[in-house]
Amino acid sequence: MLRALCFTLILLPGLALSQETPPTEPPMTLERLANIVLALDPDLVVRGPALEFTLDDIPVVVIADTSADRMRAMVPIASAEGLTADDMMRMMQANFDSALDARYAVAHGRLWGVFIHPLSPLEKDQLLSGLVQTITVAKTYGSAYTGGAAIFGGGDSNGIYQDLLDELRKKGQEL
């Protein structure tokens, strides 16, 4: 009896995970992606598979590769020259728990905020959320290192934020 129960408990979660929910939106394509971005910035510039636009005064580049079924939204942050080991460590910590779906990345001598996702299953709200998070990691670089209001947890950022809060509380006591 116990063996059958254990088998059922192990098997049933796998069955639940294998059931796919039907897509609520049509597959994302380069054309659909461009139409969504065009609604955000009428000054959108299309260069082949690259979309260049501005959100909240920040330049954004989205590149889609239909053959690989991937897309990448990128926001330039700073030159990578001069990044210290502490800078890199903090960005890696943020990538684990506070950057959310956006990430810090280095390419071509530049520090970027990026959001990478499979293209065809990408839904409009996921795209919008990814763009906001990418802009937010760029804006909070050097301070909060966050993609938004939430922290996934289990990483180092909570302790770092707690240390900052404690430091600010101490300074507040001195005033």
Results as ranks from 00 to 15, higher is better:
V61P: 03
V60K: 00
P22G: 09
G14R: 09
K124H: 06
L128C: 09
F115H: 04
L119T: 00
A144S: 09
T29R: 01
P76R: 10
N95G: 04
D86C: 07
R47H: 13
M88C: 08
H117R: 05
P42G: 13
P26T: 08
A73S: 02
L165D: 10
R32E: 05
P59V: 08
A39N: 07
N95V: 03
L122P: 00
T24D: 05
A68S: 11
P26C: 06
P23Y: 08
G159F: 12
S143F: 12
I160T: 08
P121T: 06
L40C: 06
V106Q: 08
D101M: 04
M1E: 14
M1D: 13
K170I: 11
V60E: 05
N95P: 02
T29S: 13
F115V: 05
L17W: 15
A94S: 11
L51D: 05
M74L: 12
D156G: 10
S157W: 05
V75W: 02
L11Q: 00
L30F: 03
L55N: 04
M71I: 05
G159N: 11
T140P: 00
V137I: 07
V137P: 04
A39S: 11
L5H: 03
L30R: 08
L168R: 13
S129P: 02
S143G: 12
G14M: 13
M91E: 03
P59A: 15
G82R: 10
S143A: 14
T134Y: 00
I135F: 01
V61R: 12
P49Y: 00
L122K: 01
G147R: 03
P22M: 12
V114I: 14
R72C: 02
G172Y: 13
S98D: 03
Q19C: 11
D86A: 15
L127N: 03
L127R: 01
E81R: 11
E20H: 13
A107M: 11
L51H: 03
E52L: 15
Q93A: 13
A149R: 08
V46C: 07
M88V: 10
N158P: 01
M1C: 11
P59I: 09
A105S: 14
P13R: 10
R72V: 04
L51E: 01
D125M: 08
M28V: 00
Q19L: 15
A16M: 14
Y161R: 07
V106Y: 08
P27A: 12
P22H: 09
D125N: 11
L9W: 03
L51A: 01
V60A: 02
I116Y: 02
